[in-house]
Amino acid sequence: MKRTIGFIGLGTMGGPMAAHLAKAGHHVQGVDLDPAKVAALEAAGGTACASIAAACANADTIITILPRDQHVREALLGADGVIRHAAPGTLVLEMSTILPRTSLDIAQQLQAAGLRMMDAPVGRTPADARAGRLLVMAGGSQEDFVDAQPLFECFADKVLHMGALGTGIQMKVINNYMSMVSMVLTSETLTMAKKAGIATPAAVEVLQNTVAGRGQINTNFPKKVLAGDITPDFPLSLGYKDLSLGLALGHELGTPLFLGASALELFGMAPAMGRADQDCTAMLLILEQLAGIKKD
C-alpha cells in the first residue's frame, strides 16, 4: 500500500532514506532548512515542501530525523510543529538520536494530542543509508511496528522491534556509547604501541588478527585516520554528543560508566585542539599529541 509521508530532516541519513521511500512509490513530502537537500529529494521523485505544515498535509505518516533534542522538540511540538498540523491517528516515526527521556516526553505529548509515535533510530553509515542497508531499532507497540515495517524496509535490510516505547532510542544510545568508547580504546592502544617503538602498521596487523581488535580497527580506523583521511563520516563533536547521551542514560539507570566519563573528557578536548569537526578516528591524533608523539 502506497503511503503519504511527511519527511522532516533531509540530511546525511534522512535524505537517502526519504529518496528510497519515494523510489518505492510512496508520496514523500520533504522539508529541510537547506533548499539543496529539498531539491535532491524532488529529483528523486519526492515533493518539495516549504514548511512543516505543508509536509503534514494529508500525510498518514510523519518521519523526523534531526540533529539534536531541541530540533526534534521544535519540529514536533513547536508553535508550527507536527502536533499542530497532523491529523489524529497519524503515525509519527521519530528516528533522531536524542535523549531517551526527551523522546518519551515528546511521545506522551503527541499521544495526548491523538497521534501515535514510535522511536525508531537507525544504525550503520551514510554509505549504508545511500544503499538502503540501514538497521532500524524500533520502540513502540506491536501494532504500530507492523504498520511501520514496510516503510522501514524501503531503506533498511534489518528491522528490529526492540520492545515498548523508548527501547529503540535507548538501544541506539547504548550502541553509540559502545561505539564512542571504542574510539578511545583503539586510540589508546595504538598510541601505547607507538610510544613503545612499535611501528603503527605492525601494531595494526596484530590487532586486526586478534579478538581484541575486531572492532573499530577493522572498520573505521584503517579507512580514515590511518589513511590520512579525517574528513568527518562522524565528527568528534557528534561523538561528544552521543557519549553524553550514553552517560546520561547510564546515570538514569544507575549504571557506572567509568571509561565513558574519561572518554567524554577526551572528546571534550577536541574543540580546543581544533578537531571538533574532524572524523571521530582523529581521537588517535589527540592521544598521540597528549603523549608527546611528534607527527611523522
Rank of each mutant, 00 (worst) to 15 (best):
H251W: 14
A79L: 04
F155R: 10
L226R: 02
T64I: 04
C280H: 09
T281M: 07
P201C: 14
A212D: 03
K2M: 15
A48P: 08
I286E: 07
I293E: 08
R101Q: 14
G123L: 04
P121K: 00
I63V: 09
D157N: 11
I52H: 12
D233L: 14
V211P: 02
Q109M: 09
G6A: 03
L160C: 13
T167L: 05
A138M: 02
M118L: 15
A261C: 05
K37D: 04
G239H: 05
K195P: 05
G215W: 06
C154G: 01
G25D: 05
L33I: 15
S237R: 07
S96L: 00
L76W: 00
G15A: 07
I106F: 00
L253H: 06
A24I: 14
L238S: 05
C49E: 10
K37R: 10
Q142I: 13
M273W: 12
T47A: 01
G15R: 07
M283K: 12
T125F: 11
M117I: 14
M137W: 04
M117L: 15
D80C: 04
A164Y: 04
G9A: 08
M162T: 15
L134V: 15
A53R: 03
A75C: 01
G45I: 14
V136C: 04
P271V: 14
A261V: 05
A53G: 13
T167K: 10
K195R: 11
L76D: 03
M180K: 09
M269Y: 03
A148T: 13
L41S: 00
T4E: 11
I83K: 03
L135Y: 09
G123M: 06
A50G: 12
M17T: 10
L243A: 15
A75S: 05
